[in-house]
């Protein structure tokens, strides 16, 4: 019991900080690149915009490729790239490279889905006014898809938190890794329970906040 408390006292805060680092970095990348990729997927598929089978096929293939590789393998596969980008393949920043790539592909698909939910009639009506693409994107697509995009962000954050537990493989640390290291490998059930409870609270909190924001943006 004493050792459990000891471990938590010394390890919990640094682990939480590592998780926060990984989630923030991956989410920033996913929001920017994933959003752009999601837009490309949507626009090149929709006949009301810039339907282009080739571009859509390529973008779709890349996204599927990333998403089909189990994350733990992606983590290992990307070690050389991480080394190149960060200079090291160990630590939370390094783990964020593969997390970002995975989150980007995941978020891109969700963005595509959220944009496809926008009423076609509304898009058509805004085209009929003579509006250009920039205005339609800014005042119609993003506005109408906002609740869906908020939900997509929520799901992606939760996904990243889950995946970050595997970052321990490359020494990324984080709270999920704490549960695995102590709970799984060292039979410190107490540590495992505490960290899992914290993870549950974080995920529930993220979902609740995401839902509340999405609801606030919904106008029916």
């Amino acid at each position: 019991m004493g050792s459990t408390l000891n471990i938590l006292q010394t390890e919990l805060l640094p682990a939480l900080w590592q998780t926060v680092q990984m989630v923030i970095i991956s989410m920033i990348i996913a929001l920017i690149v994933g959003m752009a990729l999601g837009l490309v997927l949507f626009l090149t598929e929709n006949p009301l915009f810039y339907r282009n089978r080739i571009v859509n096929g390529i973008a779709s293939f890349i996204v599927n490729l990333i998403r089909s590789i189990p994350f733990i393998i992606l983590l290992v596969l990307l070690i050389p790239l991480t080394q190149l980008l960060i200079g090291t393949s160990i630590g939370p920043i390094a783990a964020s490279v593969s997390l970002s790539i995975s989150a980007t592909a995941f978020f891109a698909r969700l963005v595509e889905g959220a944009l496809s939910e926008v009423d076609k009639g509304v898009i058509e009506a805004s085209k009929a006014t003579g509006a250009g693409f920039g205005l339609i994107l800014h005042d119609v697509l993003l506005v109408e898809a906002l609740p869906g995009l908020v939900r997509a962000i929520t799901v992606t954050i939760i996904n990243v938190i889950g995946f970050s537990a595997m970052a321990g493989i490359v020494g990324g640390g984080g709270i999920g890794n704490l549960a695995i290291q102590y709970g799984y490998y060292r039979y410190e059930t107490g540590v495992m329970i505490v960290t899992v409870v914290i993870l549950v609270i974080i995920v529930q909190g993220a979902q609740a906040i995401g839902d509340a924001v999405a609801r606030k943006f919904t106008r029916e």
């Binding site: 009639g121 509304v122 509006a131 109408e144």
Partner: peptide, 27 residues
């Protein structure tokens, strides 16, 4: 050319005023 539709096709998350302003911004 203006156009109106069976299902109105207004931007659901924009007010009546903003829906009209959209057409003006387009111009």
């Amino acid at each position: 050319m203006g156009m109106i539709f069976q299902h109105f096709n207004l931007i659901s998350r924009a007010t009546a005023a903003d829906n009209i302003a959209f057409a003006l911004k387009a111009n």
